[in-house]
Amino acid sequence: MSDESLPAPRAGAPGPGARIGGGTLLQVGLAVLLAFLCLAPFALIVAISFGEKVQGAAWIWSVDPGNYARVFVGALWPEEFSGLYLQRLWYSVLYATLGAVLAVATAFPFTWFLTRTGRRAQTIWLVFLLSSVSVSEVFVVMGWDILLSNRSGLPMVARETGLTDWLKAVGWFDTLRGWGLANPRDLKFKTSATATVLTMTYLVWPYAVILLYPPLSRLDPALTEAARTMGARPATVIRTVVLPVLRLPLLGAVMFLFVYLLGVYVTVSVFAAPSQQTLAVSIYDAVRGATLDAPFGAAQSVVLLAVAALCLWFGQRLGGRGA
């Protein structure tokens, strides 16, 4: 499992060296533990994804690619094509992309202003942001569920304040109905793709600020000042100097958030219509929920993992090229 012949880690370390045995032993111990805790789960998913379900919620080891066929073309292929799981994958990618892009696009100006405030104000904002990022998804969903619920949330506010009637009067109500954001009488946000994407954006928004904070606060002030002294307006400076310099951190943030959002479960299960749910929901159903087919759940997990890995690899390549 580990390479015993590796030299002890001494390269940059000052001081006399005679501790090789202990250091290597520690590394090998850590390697075994991390291989078990951090790598074995992923290896097991891959191995089990080739397993076969047997009657009564159990499964056996196998080398059957059938689970993957079921994800991509349906269980009855080639007689019949079913794109059900491809559609779920599509919604996973769609929601995650929209959520990540929206979050980074709105977090960018915020972070820009944040790094322009004093150190003390920054500290207070950071405490607020970190507290908000760590609020459990279940609480976030609970809060938005109340805010968007038809009886006591924003639809009720819109009705009481006359906004709904006004929308009906100017004819925009029918447009909203077309988008699935209203029922015949009132505004309606549950269930809708809009509510799902907005809640996802909300979930990762503080993460976006935290990811953009280091590059923005380390941005050389000379860059923007030079552009300003040459007469560029602030908006022009942002567009022609700041954004090009920061394109890699921005793209990196979108990718990190995208990967995180691929696996969001609670939000989708509460806010998305059954026909618009994601792979994360069907993984849940297969492994612990209604359908109980662990190998199939594992195969879907591998597909999700592959999308995530592809995205991270792509980001790494871009980052490597940029550096």
């Binding site: 789960p41 992923f42 990967v259 479960y265 994360a280 849940y284 890995a309």
Partner: peptide, 15 residues
């Protein structure tokens, strides 16, 4: 931490 948490959760469940 860098991969979708639901996938790690499924894997740990198996482990």
């Amino acid at each position: 931490f860098a991969l979708p948490p639901i996938v790690f959760g499924v894997g740990l469940g198996f482990l």
